[in-house]
Simulated scan of single mutants.
Amino acid sequence: MNYDLHCHSTASDGMLTPTEVVQRAVEKGVDVLALTDHDTINGLAEAKQAAQDLPITLISGVEISIVWQDKNIHLSALNFDETNENLVNLLENQTALREQRAIQIAEKLAKAGIQNAYEGAKNLAEGEITRAHYARFLVEIGAVKSIEKAFKKYLGQGKSAYVKPMWCTMEEAIDTIHQAGGVINVAHPLRYKLTARWVRRLITAFKEAGGDGIEVSGCGQSRDQRQLLARWAEEFELYASVGSDFHYPTQWLDFGKDLILPSNCKPIWTLWES
C-alpha cells in the first residue's frame, strides 16, 4: 500500500483543486491519501466526493499551525471526526487569525510601496489567504522574479512584510485532535531552520504533550535525513508518518514520490487500521 498523508489543495495554498489533488494522487499510484490543508478542512467534502469513484482511500486531515517557543511549527492531524465541535471551533479561530495576519501583511506591503496586495492575493486564493498567495501576487506584478525571492525580500521572518503569527499552542492542537478521535504528527521536522538540538527539544515537548508521531519520510530528503528522523521516532517512541507536502507538481516533489519508511519505524496508520 502506498500512503501519502500530507498534501494541499486550493482550499489553502495548493495549486490544484481537491478533486484534482485526488485524481493526481491516483495517477501517481497512491492508495491512501490525506488532504491536509492549512488550518482548514473546507476541501475535504469535495475530495471525498472525488474519491468515491476512484481506487483510493481518503482520510480526514489538516495541518495545524502552532506557536512553540516563539517559533511557527506545523502539526499534521489525521483520521479525526471533522464534525467534532472542539475541532470546528479551533479551526474557526485559526481562520480568523489567518485573516487578521493577511490584512497586516498587506498593510506592511503598502508601506513598502506595493499597493492593493490584499486584493491581489485574494484573487489568487480560492480559500484562505496565505503568504504563498502574496508571494504569487508579487511575482505576478513583477516585484520579484520567483516565489522564493518573494519570501527572501518581503515575506520571510525579519523581512519588511513579515507578520508574527499568533496561532494556537501545541497543547491545544494535540488535545483538540485527540478529542476528535484523531492522531497528530510533527510535520517535516527538519524544515524549520532549527539546529538538531532544537529539533530534539521540539520533539521532546511534543511527546510530553501527548503527540503521536513525526513525519519521517518526505520528498527531496537525503538518506541521512530520513535515517535521522527514523532514529528520533524510535528513540522518542513515536509513530512515523509519510507525506509529500504536495502543493503543485515539480521535478522533485509529487504524490507518493519516494515515500518509504525505514524498517525500524512504526507506521502511524497502524493506529487506525489495527
Rank of each mutant, 00 (worst) to 15 (best):
E20S: 13
A96Q: 11
A47I: 10
E140K: 12
A50E: 06
H133A: 05
Y134Q: 04
V144R: 04
S76D: 06
E107T: 03
I66W: 00
N79M: 06
G61R: 02
E27H: 11
N79A: 09
V139L: 11
A34S: 14
G127E: 03
N42I: 11
E107W: 04
A135N: 11
G142Q: 09
N86G: 07
I73Y: 00
T17Y: 14
Q115V: 08
K71V: 12
S65Q: 01
V26D: 06
A34D: 10
I66K: 00
A50V: 15
L97A: 11
H38W: 09
A50G: 06
T130I: 09
L54I: 13
D39P: 02
A77D: 07
T17K: 11
E63T: 11
T95R: 13
A106P: 01
H133G: 03
K48D: 15
K149R: 13
V62N: 00
N123K: 09
S65A: 03
L138I: 14
E99R: 12
L90M: 14
D37F: 07
L124T: 09
P55S: 12
Q115E: 08
E119F: 00
E82A: 10
A150K: 06
F137W: 10
D70N: 14
G120W: 06
K71E: 15
I56Q: 03
V30C: 02
E92R: 13
L91N: 05
E119G: 03
N72Y: 11
Q23I: 11
F80L: 02
R136G: 02
G113W: 04
E99Q: 10
E85W: 06
V22M: 10
Y134I: 12
R24M: 11
L75R: 00
F151W: 05
D39C: 05
P18M: 06
E128R: 03
A150V: 13
T17F: 13
P55T: 09
E85V: 15
Q69A: 15
A106F: 04
L54P: 03
E63C: 02
E148I: 13
R131Q: 03
E63R: 03
T17R: 07
H74P: 01
T95H: 10
L138R: 02
E92S: 14
K71S: 12
G113M: 09
F137T: 08
L35H: 07
A45M: 15
L16N: 13
E46M: 12
I64G: 00
Q23R: 14
V139G: 05
K108E: 02
N42Y: 06
N79Y: 10
A112V: 00
N79D: 13
